[in-house]
Structures are given as C-alpha cells and as structure tokens.
Amino acid sequence: MATRATGSRNRYGNPFLPYFLLAPSLAVLALFTFWPAIHVGWLSLYRNNLASNGPHFTGLTNFATILDDPQFRTVLFNTLEFVVGTAVPSMALGLTMALLLNRQRILSPLYRVAFFYPTLVPMVGAATAWAFIYTPGYGLMDRVLHLWGGGSLNPLGDPKLALPALIALSIWRMSGYLMIFFLAGLQSVPTDVQEAARVDGAAYPTILRRIIIPLLGPTFVFVVIIAIVNTAQLVDQLYVTTGGGPNNATNLLLWDIYQQTFSFQDQGIAATMTVVLVGALLICAALNAFLLDRRTHYDD
C-alpha cells in the first residue's frame, strides 16, 4: 500500500478547514452515538421503573440485578450463539461463494443474483417468508418432509429448534452480503503470485491458506466487524416470528432492551442492558483490532 505520503499540508491557508469539514458529521455522531452512549451509562446507575416513582440512584445495583437474573443469562447466551452461529458460517459461505465466482462463468449473473438478493430483502420480509416455510402442516419444510415420509416439524414452536431456525435464515440472508466484500478483496490478490505457486506445484488448499487468505487480511478485519455488528443489532425477525419465545429461546439482547424499555417501562434495567451491549461491541472491536488488524495499516 505504498501510496505517496498523505498530503500533510494544509494548502488552503485556513487551519480550521479540516474541523469545518468534519463539523456536520461530528455533530450528528455526537448527538446520536457519543452522547447517548455516555447518557445511557448514567441512566444505568438509577432505579427507574413503574414501581419506583421516578429515578433513584442505586449505584451498580442494576448490574448486579441483571447478572443475577437467569433469564438475562439466557438472553446473553442466545445472543452469543446467534452472533457466532450466524457470523462464522456466513463468512465461510461468503468466502466460498466469492472464490467460486471470482472468475467468469456462464451463469455468473444468475449466481450473483441468487446469492446477493437476500440482502435486498428486508429482514421482516425474509423472516415472514421463512416463517411460512417453517409453518407446520403446510409450510414448505413440512411438505418436503412429508414427501420423504417424515412427520411434522414445528421449528419456531420448539425451544430447541427455534434459535437454529432463525440462525439458518440469517445465514441465508447475510452470506451474499459478505460475498461481495470478499469479491472486492479478491481483486487485490495478485494472480501472478498464485500462478507462480501453482507452477511450483502447490495445491489449491495450500495456495488458499498461504496466499489468498493472508492477502485478504484487511478484508477479514472489515467483514468480521460487519458480520458482528449486523447480527448483534438484528432483532427485526423476532417482531414477525417468535417475539423472543418460546420461553425466551430466541430472546436476544437488543430485543430484551426493547421490551424492558417499551413494554415493561423499566428504564434503569434497559439502560444497564444497553451498557452491556455497547460494551460487548466495543470489546469485539478492540479484539478484532488487536488480533487481526496488526498487519493492516490504514494509517500513515
């Protein structure tokens, strides 16, 4: 990445120009990202619900309360399972799709459309369509099972199957999105190096492991972030399918926050859960930067 050193001069003679350029977006970020993140930390220190008659300072009691709550632990675990269970297979599939499509094929347009279109389907629409597929009795899944002489399945009504069923839907929707990032990344993997390795007799898996994947490093950094953020904040499907049920089997952190805020009117607990969510996202960002980003230098 040997671009010439960044224009380090300010050639317009106005030292405030960069700040002026940043001002509009910085104002928006401050108002809707930084201030709320701080504000919510503050709110998490108060007990504030229907029974409390206004906010009362309680220190870290709210954190103790939620950590002590088995339902919250279930929600945390579900969220972890949902994020990892969606992100990892989606990345693997996205990379495979990209590797297979990184050359001209007769049906390339069809493949691209087929893999990418779920990204363009609103999650509520996708979830609705999948809920119909999962419908016991006459949904597509049961019809297929029936053809093979199987019985009836009720994935969304079974605590063991509900989350995996929603994960399958999310993988279906996300792989194609990650595919295009991998496709873009593959453009920076020089073909001549691969060719050289091939001529030297290296097998494809070796080339993949030794050349392609290391060179895709920056793409991975980016895709990991996209995959984690997109799944961690994805609860649209719950609104049209399980609503977090059965018995919290599909309840996710952001959905819990939504319920605590708007259904149960427990602002203190909702704020505390938000702190946990934001904290977890920031830890992911830090880990990602530490583990993957070491060799990737975006900066000067």
Binding site: L50, A51, Q71, D158, P159, P246, N247, S263, F264
Partner: peptide, 22 residues
C-alpha cells in the same frame, strides 16, 4: 396486575416451557 406486561411475559414464558416439555 401492576406491571402486567412483565407478569404476562413471566407466565407466557413458563407456560411455553411446560407445553414444550422444557
């Protein structure tokens, strides 16, 4: 009840647990 939405949620969750054999 007071806080009825949350109480409803508690009993709904547990009825789900019982009905699905959890």
């Amino acid at each position: 009840t007071h806080q009825d939405q949350q109480i409803h949620q508690f009993i709904d969750d547990q009825l789900d647990a019982a009905i699905s054999g959890q």
